[in-house]
C-alpha cells in the first residue's frame, strides 16, 4: 500500500520543523514514572478519605472524587500506552496499558487496534472505529454517552464476542488476522479478572466494591465528559484535524488527570509526541491552530445546551463553542452518522 491517506499534520496542512518535532517526541521513562507516582499519591489520599467516610453520607461525594481520580487517569494512561508513548521502557508501557484498560473496561489489544483506525480516519463516518455516538448529538445520545450506558453495552458485547473468538466485521477491519488470537485470550484474561472481583464481592469482601467497582461507575461520567468533547459538534469526513478535533483549556488538575490530552488537536496532528511533550508542541504551533475552546466545564455546559436545544427543535448555535457549520441549525436536524461503537 502506498500514498499518505491518514488524517494527521500533513492532511491538515500543518508544518513543523523536523528537528524540533524529534526533540519533543523524545522518549523517556521519567515523566511517566513521576506522573504514575503522583497518581498513586492522589489515589491513596482520596481513597483514605473514602475509608474514613464509610458508613456516613459523606461517602458518596468522597467516592465520586476518588472515582474521578481513579477513572480519568486510567482512561488517559490506557490511551497513552496504546500509543506506546508513555514510557521508553516497553514492558512498563505494556503493563500500564493492561492496568489502565482493565479499569477503563476495554481489552488492551482491542483498545490499541481500534484506536489505530481512529487516527487513520479521524471522525470519518463508516471508517473511524471510535465514533461513540450518532451525529449530530441529541439529548438522548448525550445521556447514553455520559452515563456510560453506551460504552458498557458496546464493550460487553466486544468482550463476549472476542472471548468466544467470534470477531465482528468491525474488529476484523482493524485487526491483522495474525493478532486475533491475542484479542481472544486478552478478552478471556480481562473477564477472569472481572469475575474474580465479582466473586470477592459475592463472598463478602467489600474492598473491591468500595475501591474499584463503585468508584469506576461513579467516576465514569467525568471521564466520559472529557472524552465527549474531543470531537463532538465538529466536522465529519474532513481530512483536516483542525476541523474534526477540539482542544480545550483546562486547569492543572484537569491537565494532570487527562495526561495533557486537552491538547487533542495537537495529539492527532503528531501522535508520536508523548503526553509530556504536548504543552510545548501546542505552544510551538499555536499560530497554525484554532483557539482552544474554553475550559472543561464551560465547554461541556455549552455542549449540553446545544444537544438539549437540538432535541427541543431550537437553534443549535453555541455561544462560544467551536462547531462545524453543519452542526448549526435554526431548529431541526438530519441524522449525519451512526455511532461505530454501538
Amino acid at each position: 500500500m502506498t500514498g499518505n491517506i491518514a488524517t494527521n499534520a500533513a492532511s491538515s496542512g500543518i508544518v513543523f520543523d523536523r528537528k524540533k518535532l524529534k526533540a519533543l517526541a523524545k522518549r523517556s521513562d521519567r515523566p511517566g514514572l513521576i506522573w504514575l507516582a503522583q497518581w498513586v499519591v492522589l489515589l491513596t489520599v482520596t481513597g483514605w478519605i473514602v475509608y474514613l467516610t464509610l458508613g456516613s453520607w459523606w461517602l458518596l461525594p468522597a467516592m465520586m472524587v476518588y472515582g474521578t481520580v481513579l477513572t480519568v487517569p486510567a482512561y488517559a494512561l490506557s490511551h497513552e500506552c496504546a500509543h506506546g508513548t508513555a514510557f521508553r521502557t516497553r514492558w512498563l508501557n505494556e503493563a500500564c496499558l493492561w492496568l489502565g484498560s482493565l479499569i477503563y473496561f476495554e481489552e488492551p489489544h482491542h483498545r490499541r487496534y481500534s484506536h489505530t483506525r481512529h487516527h487513520t480516519y479521524t471522525w470519518h463516518v463508516g471508517k473511524d472505529s471510535q465514533m461513540p455516538f450518532d451525529t449530530p448529538m441529541t439529548f438522548r445520545g448525550w445521556l447514553l454517552e455520559t452515563t456510560g450506558i453506551a460504552l458498557f453495552s458496546y464493550e460487553i458485547r466486544v468482550f463476549a464476542l472476542n472471548a468466544l473468538g467470534r470477531f465482528s466485521d468491525e474488529t476484523r477491519t482493524f485487526t491483522p488476522v495474525s493478532e486475533l488470537p491475542k484479542l481472544k485470550w486478552g478478552a478471556r484474561a480481562c473477564l477472569a479478572v472481572y469475575a474474580l472481583l465479582t466473586a470477592l464481592v459475592a463472598s463478602g469482601s467489600v474492598w473491591p466494591l468500595y475501591f474499584i467497582l463503585l468508584p469506576r461507575l461513579l467516576g465514569g461520567p467525568v471521564m466520559l465528559l472529557f472524552t465527549l468533547i474531543q470531537h463532538v459538534e465538529l466536522q465529519e469526513n474532513s481530512p483536516s484535524i483542525l476541523e474534526s478535533t477540539r482542544s480545550f483549556r483546562t486547569g492543572c488538575i484537569g491537565r494532570f488527570l487527562y495526561m495533557n490530552m486537552n491538547n487533542h488537536v495537537e495529539h492527532h496532528l503528531y501522535p508520536l509526541v508523548p503526553f509530556h511533550g504536548l504543552p510545548a508542541l501546542s505552544k510551538a504551533i499555536a499560530d497554525q491552530l484554532p483557539e482552544p475552546d474554553p475550559g472543561f466545564f464551560r465547554t461541556n455546559w455549552e455542549v449540553f445546551q446545544v444537544v438539549l436545544h437540538r432535541s427541543l427543535g431550537r437553534s443549535t448555535k453555541a455561544p462560544s463553542l467551536r462547531q462545524a457549520p453543519n452542526m448549526i441549525t435554526a431548529g431541526g436536524f438530519d441524522r449525519l452518522s451512526k455511532a461505530s461503537m454501538s
Partner: peptide, 17 residues
C-alpha cells in the same frame, strides 16, 4: 517522519516499531 531511537524506527502514525 518517524522517530529513530538507537536502531529502532517508530512509525509516525500508530507508533509501531
Amino acid at each position: 517522519d518517524g522517530l529513530v531511537m538507537g536502531t529502532v524506527i517508530e512509525c509516525p502514525l500508530h507508533q509501531g516499531r
